[in-house]
């Protein structure tokens, strides 16, 4: 059972205090978008064995959504950060690269 630190309230919350919310940094495609873009937004989810970015909500705590970068194979957590970002912050990216030199980067 994972522990993730909520970047808003600082609680190192165990998984039962959190709700999962699928892949992070999705770009919304609304009216007028192509079928391909809409399909990728709605249905095409990454499912890597390795570095992954996810949404979590501190639902039994401060109620805020945050994002987590972790390894789906080893469960190593590279960091958590606020949801109001459109891509992983540089310090998290640097930490991942240090720990996973073979990582091909975000996107």
């Amino acid at each position: 059972m994972l522990i993730l630190e909520c970047p808003y309230c600082g609680v190192k919350a165990e998984e039962t205090e959190l709700s999962p919310g699928h892949e992070a940094h999705l770009k919304r495609f609304g009216p007028g978008s192509s079928d391909e873009d809409f399909e990728s937004y709605m249905f095409a989810r990454k499912n890597p064995k390795g570095v992954h970015f996810e949404r979590w909500r501190h639902s039994y705590g401060c109620g805020k959504w945050f994002l987590a970068a972790r390894c789906t194979a080893t469960l190593e957590v590279f960091g958590t950060y606020p949801a109001q970002t459109s891509e992983p912050p540089p310090d998290i990216v640097a930490r991942i690269k240090a720990r996973r030199p073979e990582w091909e980067g975000y996107k």
């Binding site: 709700s19 919310g21 919304r28 949404r55 909500r57 639902s59 109620g63 805020k64 959504w65 949801a83 109001q84």
Partner: peptide
């Protein structure tokens, strides 16, 4: 309520 907060926090923040 969670649905509302999701959109407010994560899309139209």
């Amino acid at each position: 309520h969670a649905h509302m907060e999701d959109w407010l926090q994560c899309e139209w923040w």
